[in-house]
């Protein structure tokens, strides 16, 4: 191994500090016994206690979970189809439709879906948010499945067909299991993108369909209490747990293989 470049390591360490310092501050202040995030007063658990009784927050968390589960589910099915189609055929239009939503600034999808939903007289709510989330999740699943598909040996399917397997059996017993890591990675990505989305949800949410990010936005904007810090800390913890669990289950997920 070549010798370490001190300058390189030092600057990288500084960037890591830049990445983590703000989050540490959020966590520390979530235990601060003062309404203001200004100076350290004393240790307390009270913001977490308050959070447990904040039904709006719990309701929003529930909404986020429902939306992310349904959107990721539907987007995974549609995205898998798209990914399989894209890797086997040359479909310019599908390619464009799958890639463009990923490349556009989110706000554009948000306002254009808002206009669409209102013009067709649809009541904004969980349903409209899900339809929107599915739209931006399809592409990510499709890309993940396409990548997996292109590394697959087509001879396997052909051999199975030659041996007399029906197309459905072929799909179920060969294609699907081989694609599974790609599909799972895509689904996980869709789930996180959906649960984390603020911009598109901001424009397509209606009455009583507030999600966690929307709730956090209004708390940050009005900035009342360190409950925001508490909920942020819990979210980070949850993410950590999910990531650890997911990497145990499928170590390849994070390498985009």
């Amino acid at each position: 191994m070549r010798k370490k470049n001190v300058l390189l390591w030092l600057s990288a360490a500084l960037v890591y500090l830049f990445l983590y310092l703000p989050l540490v501050i959020v966590v520390v202040f979530s235990f601060n016994d003062s309404k203001l995030n200004a100076e350290w007063v004393g240790f307390t658990w009270k913001w977490y206690g308050k959070l447990l009784h904040n039904r709006e927050m719990l309701g929003a968390a529930m909404n986020s979970l429902i939306i992310a589960t349904v959107s990721a589910g539907v987007a995974t099915i549609l995205g898998t189809l798209a990914g399989m189609a894209m890797s086997q055929y040359r479909l310019r239009l599908l390619q464009l439709l799958v890639l463009a939503p990923i490349a556009m600034p989110e706000i554009l999808m948000g306002v254009s879906l808002l206009v669409l939903f209102i013009l067709v007289n649809m009541t904004l709510g969980l349903m409209s948010i899900m339809l929107a989330h599915i739209t931006f999740c399809i592409g990510f699943v499709a890309l993940s499945v396409q990548a997996r598909m292109s590394s697959m040996d087509p001879a396997l399917v052909e051999a199975a067909r030659d041996l007399g397997a029906s197309p459905w059996r072929c799909f179920r017993e060969i294609t699907l299991p081989l694609l599974m890591p790609g599909i799972l990675a895509g689904a996980l990505m869709a789930f996180t993108l959906s649960i984390d989305d603020f911009v598109i949800t901001f424009f397509t949410a209606g009455v009583g369909s507030s999600t966690l990010p929307l709730q956090i936005y209004s708390m940050v904007k009005i900035a009342v209490t360190p409950e925001v810090n508490a909920v942020s800390t819990l979210l980070m913890l949850l993410t950590l747990v999910v990531i650890t669990a997911a990497s145990r289950l499928s170590p390849t997920i994070f390498r985009g293989e």
Binding site: P22, I25, D196, F198, Y217, V220, S232, T239, I243
Partner: peptide
């Protein structure tokens, strides 16, 4: 993973962190 990790916390939380830091009383 250490680069991606902060990225997995909601982006509003990350903005909020800087609002605390930039606060004149901070």
């Amino acid at each position: 993973l250490l680069v991606i990790l902060p990225f997995w916390s909601n982006f509003l939380v990350r903005i909020y962190a800087w609002m605390i830091i930039f606060s004149p009383a901070g």
